[in-house]
Design a protein around this nucleic acid. Sequence first.
DNA 1: CGCAATATTAACAATTTTGTTAAACAACCG
DNA 2: CGGTTGTTTAACAAAATTGTTAATATTGCG
Lengths: 205, 205
Amino acid sequence: MKQKPTESVILDAAMRVFTRKGFAATRTEEIAKEAGMNRALLHYYYRDKQTIFNLIFERRFSEFFKGLFIIFETDSPLFEKIEKMVDHEISTISQHPDLPRFILMEVAQHPERLIEYGQKLGLNPRIFLEQFEGQVQAEVRAGRIRPIEGRQLVINIMSLCMYPFVAKPIIKTMMQLDESKYFEMQERRKKEVYEFIIHAIKVSV
Amino acid sequence: MKQKPTESVILDAAMRVFTRKGFAATRTEEIAKEAGMNRALLHYYYRDKQTIFNLIFERRFSEFFKGLFIIFETDSPLFEKIEKMVDHEISTISQHPDLPRFILMEVAQHPERLIEYGQKLGLNPRIFLEQFEGQVQAEVRAGRIRPIEGRQLVINIMSLCMYPFVAKPIIKTMMQLDESKYFEMQERRKKEVYEFIIHAIKVSV
DNA sequence: CGCAATATTAACAATTTTGTTAAACAACCG
DNA sequence: CGGTTGTTTAACAAAATTGTTAATATTGCG
């Protein structure tokens, strides 16, 4: 029976609650309850709510962006890269389905954090983006894909992967899916989205 | 110099603040300031914060879903319908760019409202969805589009239209777009997304 | 004008949420 | 075992947020 150190019990609980509710709607009381302890203990280990939140935000921010950028970085051929991106995004986010909504919510409210934490992680979107745009334009010139702006393609890929998670409650309700049906739908999407994109850009033979 | 009735000055201010911040992060003080009045006056016209929020939510919920369902309802041919949907969504949401994020945030926190307000508006997603799936399957059988589940197509269309708004702050920062560049990008998307979808589903000739 | 009725505000009160303190408890070590 | 350290809690205090009230200002109308 290895008991986790209280610090990480707190952080794990805080992660769940903050991710579900966002900073503003989160009550420290709820974090404490989720961690099975008294509210005062949070303050014993961490100065205040904001301090805990910042730690969580950094963690989740990294989870959200790190994997994505790793794939941008690899120099596979375009189609392979897209396949990896789609598969990676849908797979990893499936295990943290409310991560995108959390990031979007908090970044929308404090856009300056995007720059701050982006630098902290050493992310440089400009470089990745330029590299990707170059790759796309090369394919276009080679006549393998129809003309498309690299950035529009990136936006399309991200949209197709992320939105179904962000809109999970709406999709579940409108399509009357329970948790497992929703999961199956996402599983099918790995193939569906990849093929959708390839057909969308490939020049017909 | 026609002065608007105080009720609607309040609601308009509340709409802006709630939409920007969501319920939990909104301070009644901020609504009052935005409306150019004393906080007490909000309570003179409306019982409390929650009452104001409910009015706003109903309004915005309707804005978000009503237009969408109208297009589902029309019986244009598939490609035309898709074109209308894409154009309509991107155009109308462009005028209310943070509407989708607001709806998603609040529905994620209170999914039961989706059903409640959906019924209030007389929306019946099941019927529209079945009708659309039928239309898609007919096209598939006719060999005009490649095999695809109707629901996956709906999700794809919505994703491509909505996500760029939901992720606006991230996209703006990562792609270094100012407000007008971002707007231009969305303008170009009307055509881009439509063509992307058509190529993705059309059987090559 | 003058007085209702309505609109608005400032000051106050209640509630909710956060943060602190001092005392109880537990673990470790001589 | 006794004392010392670090952990946890209950009770309290402070701050922030919301809601109320009573007094003031404004409007319209006889």
